[in-house]
């Protein structure tokens, strides 16, 4: 099976600072792939290069066989890569439903069809009852789900999630894990996530990549990666396991 996303020898420097150093990995269709690592490891920089916010200095990024590095964020999204933001950015003055409607209109021209689909997505994410609320009035967990709903409404093949669990309580995290599993299984969306909450990563990811100072230090199945001595010293710490 050809990979959905393949990142080959990608590097990014900011002036002299190497943020991402020759990182390569592939994401297979249908899987959930996690990128973990300590703060400043280059996770968000990597993420932003895939999403089209930053252009890499070297290397290639291909999505469904098509080169996407250096394209604009909107072009990347139109190809089928949707993202959420680490610090959520809902459209504050619009209703919850209209927020999702904007996502649904990416590949739909019929307004009624887009609205129907937006409501479907809202129902999946437990936000249907709040559809008439202004986005600015939502609580953080609701905003996180709204952000996810809006991204899902664009019918992505690949969903990029930037710390979607951060700031959630354990019960809320569990619910989010459940939702993401559903999205992956029922909607057939491949997921690439950056995450600090190991509880969620272990529950979700089929494969993972560990970054440290911009370079990959481990790759593979979660159970193996968390036993890797390098990962334990640089990121997890002894007591996590």
């Amino acid at each position: 099976m050809s990979p959905l996303l393949s990142v080959v020898d990608v590097g990014k420097r900011f002036r002299g600072l190497v943020a991402v150093d020759r990182v390569s990995f592939t994401v297979q269709p249908g899987e959930i792939f996690a990128v973990i690592g300590p703060n400043g490891a280059g996770k968000t920089t990597l993420f932003n290069m895939i999403a089209g916010v930053l252009a890499p200095n070297e290397g290639t990024i291909s999505f469904r066989g098509e080169r996407i590095e250096g394209r604009t964020p909107d072009a990347v999204c139109r190809l089928g890569v949707a993202r959420t933001f680490q610090i959520v950015r809902p459209f504050p003055g619009l209703s919850v439903e209209d927020n999702v409607m904007i996502g649904a209109l990416l590949h739909r021209t019929d307004m009624a069809a887009a609205r129907r689909y937006a409501r479907e997505v809202l129902a999946t994410l437990d936000l249907f009852d709040k559809r008439d609320f202004r986005a600015s009035t939502l609580t953080l967990p609701d905003r996180k789900r709204l952000e996810l709903a809006r991204a899902l409404a664009t019918d992505p093949k690949l969903l990029l999630l930037d710390e979607v669990m951060a700031g959630l309580r354990p019960t809320e995290t569990d619910r989010m894990v459940e939702i993401l599993r559903g999205v992956n299984r029922d909607m057939g969306v491949t997921i690439l996530l950056i995450e600090h909450v190991m509880r969620a990563v272990m529950a979700l990811a089929g494969h993972m990549l560990v970054l440290h100072h911009g370079a990959p230090i481990a790759k593979g199945a979660p159970q193996d990666v968390v036993r890797d001595p390098k990962v334990i010293t640089s990121y997890l710490g002894q007591e996590t396991i």
Binding site: P73, D74, R89, P90, P92, L94, I102, T154
Partner: peptide, 14 residues
């Protein structure tokens, strides 16, 4: 409306 509210988010939605 999306652009009025948040250009970066609008761009991320294609």
């Amino acid at each position: 409306l999306a652009i009025r509210e948040d250009e970066t988010a609008a761009r991320a939605l294609g």
